[in-house]
Every structure is written in structure tokens, then in C-alpha cells.
Amino acid sequence: MDDDQQSICSAGVFSDIASISELENVVTSKDGENLQISQNISRIRNKQKRAVAYIKLRKEQRKERIKLRRQRQKMREELGKDAPPILPPKTIDNRREKEDTIVQKEDREVLLDIESDEMAPYFQRKQCPKILLTTSDRPRSRTTRFLKQLGEVLPNSFIFYRRALDIKKIIPQCIAKGYTDIAVINEDRKNPNGILLCHLPDGPTAHFKVSNVRLRKEIKHSTTPSEHQPEVILNNFGTRLGHSVGRMLAALFPHDPEFKGRQVVTFHNQRDFIFFRHHRYIFRNEKRVGLQEIGPRFTLKLRSLQKGTFDSKFGEYEWIHKRHEMDTSRRKFHL
């Protein structure tokens, strides 16, 4: 119990705003020379002269880089076996900005929060998902096809024509009939572009942007699904917000996948984009696995997460993507 208390004691993470600004200062002072030159260039008022100066600067920078690379190559050849290992390439993903809300495994407080959230009955196996699928009003053919195919992916889901009903009026009826989720697909110019996922009876409600929709027919060598319950893979939902969203998505599929069907649904999060894929696999031998895509294929991006059932006017938001405030860095991710 002592350990538990200790972990529940570490109550928070401080975002060190001060130290970040200091770091930036250090960086600027490091390549201060280049900075000075580039500043001087921006002060040149004649556009042609400025362009020439800029090209010259870029050339010099390139020369410097090539020189350094040559030096490193030479050193590596000289040292042979003792050479330092080649560093992994710098990518946006591995230089991700430090996120305070990454969930640690042994964190009792977050666990306490997660275990008593709205999706808890599903994870305690007290509830089986039952999903209502519908669209925005007057859907066009591509959206209806997408809806149909999504209905084949989600076991125990029911497709309904919207009939110009308000979502706020649908919700109480759904709760009475024992639905656990509502998914509403929105379309724009005949193409599906958004999905609203509302967990019942007490929320939360997530709004996603949908892009790059490929229906089954548009995927090469695609096939049709069977009625087996699929396995679910959720990748990289590391932050606190990611956990909430991941749990919502997991709660759409029933427990106990039927492995006989060899179907797998993947939600892969990379740089805040959630990629949805639906495959059938086969173990060809001990080493090789064959994959066949079933489809559909699409990408989700979280726009907002709201507490409670759908109420975009008076509902309280837990998280909203504010582009101008949040997207300050290419290496900052929220999920």
C-alpha cells in the first residue's frame, strides 16, 4: 500500500515554460553567425540583391555540410571497426516535443481516473457494444456505400436513414433501446468528410475529420469481410487524451475476437492522424504472413472531445483542436 500511496502522491507534471525559452536562447546563440547573416539579408531592400545574397548563403551552408560529412566519412574509414556507430536519422517522430500527459504504466491516479470513466462498463465486460450508424441528411451514393461498408466492419451495428432527425432527439431513444454508441457520418460535396462518435449513455462525444476514404472497390485486390468478430489493434495512443480516444474506439468492437475469421482492424496513430485499416491475414509458414486488405480505408483526425452526449452549443469540451494556438510546432502531437 505504501507504494500505491507514493505513486498517487506524484500529483502533477510541470511544463517548464521557463526552461524551454532558455533552450531556445542557447540554440540561437549557437548558430548566431548564420543568424546574423540571414538577418542582414532580410535587411537588404533590393529584391534582386537579396535573392543573390540568399543563394550565396545557401551555397555556403551546403558546402559546410558536405565538408563535415566528408570529415566524418574519413574518420570512419580511418578508425575502421572502432568507429562510432551511425546515428539514427532525425525524424519528426523521434524528435517529438516533450508531452507532459504521456501516461505512465504504474501511475495509480490516472488508472483510477480511467477505470471509473464512461467506457468502464464495456471494459469490465458488463456491456456489449451496439452501434447505430447514420449519416447527415440526404446522403449521396458514395457516403451511403461508405456507411454500408463501415457497418460490415462493426459487428452488432445497425444502419438507419437519418430522416432529418436531430441528434439530440435520437440520443434518448437510443439510450432507451440499449445502444452504446452513435456514429454519424457527415459529407461534403458527395464525399464523406467527418464522423461524430457519441458514446451512450453519458458521453463522451468525439468529432473526427475523415480524409482519404478508399472504398472496397477502389482498393486493389480487396476482398469481402466475413461475419466473424475482428481483432482490434490500437497503436500509439500514448497521452491522456490518446487513452480516452483509444478507449472510445476500442469500445466499438465486442470482446473475444473470433480468430477463425483471421480479420483484424487497425487504428494506427501517427502524428495525430489515426489510420484505419481492415485486413485478413494468413500465416504462410513460420516466418511469413500474408495480408489481404478488406477495406474500407480512411484516416481520422480528432477535432474535439466533449464531455457528455452530443451538445455542441452548451456542452463542455474536454479538448478542442485550436489550430492557431496549438499547431505552433511541427513536432508537437496531442494523441
Binding site: A11, G12, V13, F14, S15, I17, D100, T101, D107, E109, V110, D113, R240, E318
Partner: peptide
């Protein structure tokens, strides 16, 4: 903000 502290619960 001048300080920002993540406190794990709502």
C-alpha cells in the same frame, strides 16, 4: 501562461 501544470485528473 507563465506556469502550466498537468495534474492528471479533471
Amino acid at each position: 501562461p507563465i506556469h502550466k501544470v498537468y495534474l492528471k485528473s479533471r
